[in-house]
Design a protein around this nucleic acid. Sequence first.
RNA 1: GCACAGGUGGGUGAGUGGUUAAAGCCGACAGACUGUAAAUCUGUUCCUCCUAGCGAGGUACGGAGGUUCGAAUCCUCCCCUGUGCA
Length: 375
Amino acid sequence: MPVGTVASVKAVPQETLEELGAQIILGNTYHLYLRPGVETVRRMGGLHRFMSWNRAILTDSGGFQVFSLSELRTLNEEGVTFRSHLDGSSHFFSPESAMAAQIGLGADIIMAFDECTEYPADPARVRASMEMTARWAARSKKYFEEHKHEVPWQAVSGFEYRVSSGGNGRNSKPETRNGSAELPSATPALFGIVQGGMDRQLRKESAERTVEIGFPGYAIGGLSVGEPRELTREIVESTLEHLPKDQPRYLMGVGNPEEIVEYASLGVDMMDCVQPTRAARHGLLFTSEGRISIKQARYAQDSEPLDPNCGCRVCQRYSRAYLRHLYASNEVLAQILNTVHNLSFYLDTMRRVRHSISLGEESRSLSGIWSRPKP
RNA sequence: GCACAGGUGGGUGAGUGGUUAAAGCCGACAGACUGUAAAUCUGUUCCUCCUAGCGAGGUACGGAGGUUCGAAUCCUCCCCUGUGCA
């Protein structure tokens, strides 16, 4: 899932995302709540209509911002008091207000309000944080069930794809509508989030408690927060054992191309990461033959495409030398082309993963994923 | 020709007697980036040597000479640039 924090996947227009085959993108409650404001989005017909994106949207609850903006917050049982990074103003988020905000934004999948435990953290702190997340999950669900129909009305035309709210996401049928009539949007799906730091036992307990509350999908949060990669893998693997296989399992905030393939092979169904978009803006490009730092002098006169095995428009049309020049010149086009390629690479990788899974090749090696069949 | 102003490392630009191989910014060259306060952040950027260190030596602030224990900084002459006046 490409990340589009402020209702924008940075540097890429929605039509290009469609072309790349993105089925779902992320938005962030914290950021959108601050600007333009939930009420504005609601009045504009909800996030889909506001940003003209007819495919699925998942909104993060703001729980991660509690973690990443920790200098600007105070936290208690009731919720979190934030100071806005934009103007320093004070705001309060609770499970209830985070649900209200997400329902108001009108995403397809919304996330429980959790607390992303920092790393490292002592055992007592990890347990307390995990338990807080569990209590908040119950409150999130309660509020959600009472208010889930209060989504924005959307006068949608060409409404082509939407994750259904019931059951698990996999079996949902895309709905196609072509009318001009106003439709009430379907109710969103609320996913729970597992925490528990790097402790397998706490992860198990968190997973069980979250499953007991009951959600149509489950996320593994609190990883990729600075821990060694080996540990991430170990925790993901052990946590997955305690989450239902027949429901979407979402690993939050991960990862590199190698990692997303690996986690998919472990049974993760959904992932999101800023890596492809941010790295692209910083000149780091992912290819079937490894990483390329396009800013390096060695590419100054390299007429090859970025990735000879890539079918994206960027690789079909532009040379490494040109991409390096654009980057060195600080041109906006560098960000656009780089991001388009990286997203293309990620989305293509996941298409291959899905194809492999459909063929029953779930353990297919990473190199197998990226090698092209000989023509 | 006269009068002012000025010539500093790849660029720009601080520095007006000593802790200055010379700030900052730009450029160049590397590196980082994992539920986005990120078109961001970090490092290196005169030469040589080694035991690789807040190491040793060399060269350097238009040119030449001088004053001084010590000069990018003060003095003399010269060269060059900009502006104004003839």
